[in-house]
Nucleic acid binder design. Sequence first.
DNA 1: CTGAAAGCGCTTACAG
DNA 2: CTGAAAGCGCTTACAG
Lengths: 341, 341
Amino acid sequence: MKNTRITLKDLAKELNLSASTISRALVNHPAISEATKKIVQKKADELGFIPNSIAASFRMKRTQTIGVIVPRIDIHFHSLVISGIEEFAYNNGYNVTIFQSKDSLKREKEIIKILQNKMVDGVIVCLGIETQNCDHFKKINKSGIPLVFYDRVPTDFDANKIVINDFESAYLATEHLIKNGCTTIGHISGSQTTNIFKARLEGFKAALKKHHLPIEESLILFTKNLTYEEGVACAEKYLESPLKLDGVFCANDYTAVSVIQVFRKAEIKIPEEIAIVGFSNYPISRIIEPHLTTINDRAFQMGEAATKLLIRQIEEKDDDIKSETITLKTELIVRESSSRN
Amino acid sequence: MKNTRITLKDLAKELNLSASTISRALVNHPAISEATKKIVQKKADELGFIPNSIAASFRMKRTQTIGVIVPRIDIHFHSLVISGIEEFAYNNGYNVTIFQSKDSLKREKEIIKILQNKMVDGVIVCLGIETQNCDHFKKINKSGIPLVFYDRVPTDFDANKIVINDFESAYLATEHLIKNGCTTIGHISGSQTTNIFKARLEGFKAALKKHHLPIEESLILFTKNLTYEEGVACAEKYLESPLKLDGVFCANDYTAVSVIQVFRKAEIKIPEEIAIVGFSNYPISRIIEPHLTTINDRAFQMGEAATKLLIRQIEEKDDDIKSETITLKTELIVRESSSRN
DNA sequence: CTGAAAGCGCTTACAG
DNA sequence: CTGAAAGCGCTTACAG
């Protein structure tokens, strides 16, 4: 059953050619005559030749493989990014090997080791929540393997990054609320140790300032992980607030959905009495009623852009480490939750 | 910058030992003395030795890699399965390489080729929608690479499969509606070329029959892909039906959510007037109001079980092809959408 | 308990 | 346009 695979040598013997010629013919080397190429290709098909790309990788020290490290693959955002990575990689002849760090620093370090053992050509990573220090990444980078970060990116060294313009997106979202007549606007934010949530908060404040609205600190609520449950708690706080708010900008869609539900249960009309904007354009945003205005965070494009940058660096000849930051444009998707006409 | 990696030979020279001994010491071979192992390990750490596992794979014809083919990675069900695969594989020393077939047969065949080139040790796959004929999989199987299917599995050959008991799950879900007093129950089904949806429909009918309720064909609606939008259309049909239905069992959660929303908009009380049950336990099921009763389809466990079975077959010595079907137990999660007490 | 030697299947610099 | 030869870094059967 386990038939031994045909090799270049077998093909060579069969055709009275050298293995070198077979090898070259199969990769369409310009020095080989068309006639020979045709003969070789035909024989290869005939005998069901399966090239051993492990042997080739070993020889060339190139695996055509990209390693990906995400906190968890079953978070929709990451699965969208990975989808973009796989798509772009596939179309450019690279394969993708996936690892979940589970937000564990220990595991992240183990994975880095495996990636080096396996000689991946490059690595795309979203840092785990525990990771404050990127020495393990610096090491792999110095060994000549290009690295691109997305979403949660390192601050302690100069790396390739794909990000979105969180500040401006938040600014835009907030301004949209203002333009729809909101004057007392709350914000539900995430952990301030994560840059993107800090930036969203800043953008929110900047928009208020710009439009001469007061920044009510009591309406800025902080959560740990922006979960649905935390969102419910925040919404309940808003209900108890002496300030009568008429708009909320949430740093993600889950919390926005909880706010919608809690307010509706309290018989508050959305968007008439309170307008809501979320962030990320999760599938639920166009299912929840009223449909949620949100920011398209371009997860798929993030994966594509990361892979494109990575492959360019893999295939570039020169060995200088340089780092680029690519900022993707987001988009405000206006739906009913904020549309007062 | 691109420092050349230390090899076994370098280590051997450094320690006045042979490469054989170094190799054995590093894998904890029993024939090597503890003293030697210690020395070797110390030196390896000191010089930052990174084993070249591509060389090892090449030599041993074993890559410790599992190939995974899914239609799309950004479908929540699949990302959950992959999460289970990655987790189990990681804990057992295997890596996971992911490919998306995008439901294209052509692409599926291309991927199979790549997988063979890359000499993965085994493959886990959910068939694409176009795939009626599994010859390409038979071929890779015959070449000695074990294969495990999940969710959409082949019917034209005897393969390893991980499935859930769709029939019984549907039976249970329907019986649950009956026990909550429903007598005129509809079903929203998926494509009948897909076995799981056929089985769910059969389970639905069996439960009605068992409880001596009539099977109203006009209340059994078929969709192509069980999308949210198709669900809306089905719900509207139900509203126009002369039969006054009081329960709906939906073959997935998306359609169940649309039914809830359409009915609520029509001022129908859920669950009092119509009770709803979905299938899959998607995150949205515990967000939508009322929360949706549904079937936990064990996606994560499916990934684990598939990987466990695959690894066992990879590591088994004997070359017989045998096929196992593992059926996972599902679970009915009762929530408000069907609870009439 | 340790070593010498062969070989896995490719690619490529060199030669012609 | 084609070939002979070396070598990538491991593992392992064999010998001692």
